[in-house]
């Protein structure tokens, strides 16, 4: 019978009993609801062996790739070390190697950290020595020098963001969590057209995803719409225009929703312009990052226009309330 390890608990689980039932019988607290593989409340992750295929039915491909599975659909086949989502992994020490101002209120923070596996577009919790913690998206694909880039927008009373902008220095330590989230690129369908829509520093994960996709030889069209109210909120525009000039299948549309109109920008909200431009999104993969309302509206509009829900990846940036 397979041995299942969860935290400090070790269980011997019969293969003909659902893993969820074995865990619950052992008085382990596992969230669950529908028991039919639908609600995904009992989502868990295997840290070593691949989970049974049946236990991964209906999960996003990016989650399947990370060995996530549903405990209520899992008849264990082999030994597994499992965990609940986002409760695993030790923290990792990092050192600040660069700070570069991308826009008046956006700082690109580069840190160096060894032994961290991630995909561009996932997010990481950054922690200051006193414990103050915030989540930021990774804006670059894995590189040989083990660096990670983040775009830190200064918030009016943001304790963490103001500290990054004003206090944090090159050489300072930071503690990182393991990478989390399912908003990233997978090279399983290189010809699929991609639509990426971001507002503000929601560009960060998209910037990483685009570079990752291109590095992995993505051949389908890639359309990026980046939106802000005023030109100061758009950044990396030079780099993106250059990329569009050099890569025929990459298309970049910077959008401004505020007044007055400025030349060189599309006028309007990024997601409205992006979705108005596309008649039918059947077969597209859509990435949405930034303001929660934009993300929710776009998700709905993209779905109605034919994109399949499993092909819509989103990351809503929720601003943490200042304590």
């Amino acid at each position: 019978m397979p041995h299942i390890t969860l935290g400090a608990s070790q269980l011997t689980c019969p293969s003909e009993t659902l893993l969820l039932d074995s865990l619950l019988q052992a008085n382990l607290r596992i969230p669950y609801s529908c028991r039919q593989g639908i609600c995904q409340s009992c989502l868990m992750q295997s840290l070593d062996a691949k989970p049974p295929a049946l236990a991964q039915v209906g999960l996003k491909d990016t989650l399947q790739r990370q060995n996530y599975f549903l405990a209520c659909r899992c008849y264990p086949e082999q030994d597994m070390h499992i965990t609940l989502p986002n409760q695993h992994g030790q923290s990792i020490n990092a050192v600040v190697t660069e700070k570069r101002r991308l826009a008046p209120d956006i700082m690109q923070l580069t840190v160096q950290a060894n032994g961290l596996n991630f995909y561009a577009g996932q997010f990481i919790n950054l922690q200051r020595a006193d414990g103050l913690t915030r989540s930021y998206s990774i804006a670059n694909p894995p590189s040989p020098d083990n660096t990670l880039e983040f775009h830190i927008r200064r918030l009016p009373h943001g304790q963490f963001s103001n500290w990054v902008h004003d206090g944090l220095a090159i050489g300072d330590p930071l503690t990182l969590s393991q990478a989390q989230g399912s908003c990233y690129y997978l090279p399983d369908n290189p010809a699929q057209p991609l639509l990426l829509i971001g507002t503000g520093s929601g560009l960060a994960p998209l910037y990483g995803i685009i570079h990752d996709a291109l590095a992995q030889g993505h051949s389908g069209d890639i359309h990026l719409y980046h939106g802000s109210r005023d030109p100061d909120g758009l950044y990396l525009t030079e780099e993106l225009h250059t990329l569009a000039a050099n890569v025929a299948h990459f298309h970049y549309t910077p959008c401004l929703s505020g007044e007055p109109q400025a030349s060189g920008y599309a006028q309007g909200r990024a997601h409205e312009l992006a979705l108005a431009d596309k008649k039918n999104l059947k077969g597209w993969r859509v990435y949405l990052c930034g303001h929660p309302e934009m993300v929710n509206n776009s998700q709905r509009m993209a779905y109605i226009k034919g994109a399949s829900l499993k092909d819509i990846y989103s990351d809503a940036f929720v601003v943490q309330q200042a304590e």
Partner: peptide
């Protein structure tokens, strides 16, 4: 949450289709 909502629609349709349901 649209994914959750779609999951609920799926549970509803499974039931209406006479499929296994809770």
């Amino acid at each position: 949450d649209m994914a959750q909502q779609a999951a609920k629609q799926k549970a509803f349709l499974t039931m209406a289709f006479g499929g296994p349901n809770n």
